[in-house]
Design a protein around this nucleic acid. Structure first.
Lengths: 169, 169
DNA sequence: TTTTCCATGTAACTCGTTACATGATTTC
DNA sequence: GAAATCATGTAACGAGTTACATGGAAAA
């Protein structure tokens, strides 16, 4: 449901068309959702059919006409419901990367440390990118903040694991 | 790929049948993977067809016969490859719950705080459960440790957000 | 003039889930 | 005798992705 929540929430601020929504989400929300273009259009269509958003064609010059979406009353209600649900519930993140950790002892300590140092580089890059992102208006800043706090905690822990391995080597 | 990695890694320690594998994963690995029974059987079949595991029927008394899987040489190779990849790469977790945070300012501060306190309860439960889990052998302990560190960081941050909201109210 | 950007979609496919089916065995 | 457990699957479905198609406009 979080994709719908996001789309509705963005439309709540101002009317937008699909391309615009997709672009915004890709640029600023990549940390929590990743929705492709076809999915965006599909979801918008579904929301429109459910009556949560209204469409209106708009053309500027000879450019391809665009379908602008507006939040309806029902949409606002639905948004509030989804928002309350999303905030009240904590759905634990799945760490696909943890699986490998379970088999760390399969490898010789030096070898394992080398691989984790590679992981550390990737992680540090993510963190640097998050930290260099321009500040965002309102609560959107919270999302970024959360991401940074999380990545920092990850980095600290990874360093500790690497240290242990190198101490053992 | 992390599901395959997990299955191969478990079979590497000892031969197991599908039911056993599924049960183990559900009980001890729920933090990083969640694979249902049909998926487990499907995956094992795929791994068998690819030659990474070998099957052998086994029956105990009149109980339903079970298909025991054994890691092959090729499977061991594949496991090593997957493991190295998994360790070297950091794939950022997606926080579906963050979406709601982006729209926190839509709600009146007290209201928002109330919802987040609910979230906090759920989160605290997850943490308590992770902390009370019995220690695991070898590197499996790392997975649990990681989960605990993560949940603690989440809780700390959540508390800070709630504090800010209550300060503003 | 060729590439990139704007703007929207469709079709086919993959992955995984739900719900269902089977049947023996142990536990209540 | 009923329910839960052991053990394996199939069939139908759903959500989301990839690859493809279209076509004008701006930029290189």
């Amino acid at each position: 449901m979080e994709r719908e929540l996001l789309l509705l929430g963005l439309l709540r601020r101002r009317d937008m068309h699909g391309y615009q929504l997709h672009e915004f989400i890709e640029r600023f929300m990549q940390t929590c959702v990743d929705l492709k273009k076809p999915t965006a259009y599909y979801l918008l269509d579904k929301l429109a059919q459910a009556g949560y958003v209204a469409q209106s064609e708009e053309r500027e010059g000879n450019r391809p006409p665009r379908r602008v979406y507006t939040l309806t009353e029902a949409g606002e209600q639905y948004f509030q419901t989804l928002l309350a649900q999303n905030l009240a519930d904590y759905l634990p993140a799945r760490f696909a990367g943890s699986v490998g950790l379970a088999f760390l002892d399969v490898l010789e300590a030096g070898n394992a440390a080398a691989l984790l140092r590679q992981r550390r580089t990737v992680l540090a890059n993510h963190l640097a990118q998050a930290q260099s992102a321009p500040p965002h208006g309102g609560s959107f800043q919270l999302v970024l903040e959360h991401q940074i706090v999380h990545l920092q905690s990850e980095l600290t822990w990874l360093d500790e694991v690497i240290n242990r391995l190198e101490g053992a080597a």
